[in-house]
């Protein structure tokens, strides 16, 4: 749930026509291999079922059935990926399972050309090397060399670029990202604890000039889930660190630490937001009095 750092290498920022940049998290190669495996499994099962039905109706001999299997895997393969990505907006069933999807990296909608391009290239980049590897045993020296070059050439591409694009993605202008999914959490400044704490503690401007955005949001994480943050002793330690750093002169009685932290969070946020409105963004405690 932690907020992705904008400088994070795995974040892709795209600008939709509305002009407000939105961020996606680039899918890991592991998730993509998982999705690919699921899809292959699924197409395999579809072909298997068709063959089984045809064979059990006794219309075909076993040999003809095996021919049909080869033809079906080939004819099903490319259209399967193209149609599922087209109909479900960049998600094959395997990608749905893995929680990833294809998006247009230029902030437009995904076009059919992109879907077709990246999946045709999948044939080139994935299935052909795969089948060549499986038949490499009987190849001549040249054949082996070509196979090796092809396999390494295509395999290295997704590792070699920041967006984890394979060649097909580059040609099509697509990126595979994680599905965005999140809950709206309550505003801490409006919670009951905050209401109760408001009267108990008062802060002077000097107290609030120490910390910045980063520290505030770390405190936010802590307050949303105090159990996760640790025992009462640790919270006590955090509280004493804060009071020492900001030179808070009031008294925080034992058992009142969370109330204090809530009050401090609220006051600190109000202060920083006010500074922001006047153009001063304080990112962390190391940044002082810098007007932007």
């Amino acid at each position: 749930m932690s907020k992705p750092d904008p400088d994070d290498k795995r974040i892709l920022e795209i600008v939709p026509p509305e002009g407000v940049a939105i961020r996606f998290r680039i899918a890991s190669l592991g998730a993509r291999f998982g999705a690919q495996f699921l899809d292959m499994l699924l197409t395999g099962v579809i072909v298997g079922v068709v063959i089984f039905v045809l064979a059990s109706t006794a219309l075909f001999e076993s040999e003809a059935a095996s021919v049909l299997a080869v033809l079906l895997t080939f004819l099903l393969r490319i259209p399967y990926y193209i149609l599922t990505e087209l109909v479900w907006n960049g998600r094959t069933p395997g990608k749905r399972g893995a929680g990833i999807r294809v998006i247009n990296m230029y902030g437009q909608r995904l076009t059919p050309h992109q879907i077709v391009a990246r999946n045709l290239m999948k044939e080139v980049e994935f299935f052909t090397p795969l089948s060549m590897l499986s038949t490499a045993q009987g190849m001549s020296g040249w054949g082996k060399a070509v196979t090796l070059v092809l396999v390494f050439g295509v395999a290295i591409v997704p590792f070699a670029n920041r967006r984890r694009q394979r060649l097909g993605d580059m040609i099509a202008g697509t990126v595979v990202v994680e599905n965005p999914r999140m809950q709206l959490l309550p505003d801490l400044a409006l919670s009951a604890a905050s209401e109760a704490s408001q009267q108990a503690f008062a802060f002077q401007p000097a107290h609030l000039n120490v910390y910045g955005r980063f520290e505030l949001q770390t405190l936010e994480d802590l307050l949303r889930d105090p159990q996760k943050a640790g025992s009462a002793a640790e919270i006590r330690k955090i509280t004493s660190t804060i009071t020492r750093k900001i030179a808070y002169d009031g008294l925080v009685r034992p058992g009142e630490e969370l109330v204090f932290l809530n009050a401090f969070y609220r006051a600190q946020r109000e202060h920083l937001e006010k500074l922001r409105l006047f153009g001063t963004k304080r990112e962390d405690k190391f940044q002082r009095e810098e007007s932007l």
Binding site: K3, R23, M182, E220, D221, R224, E273
Partner: peptide, 11 residues
Amino acid sequence: LDRALVDYLES
């Protein structure tokens, strides 16, 4: 500076 809010809106 409410991180939960900005994250929610982003997603």
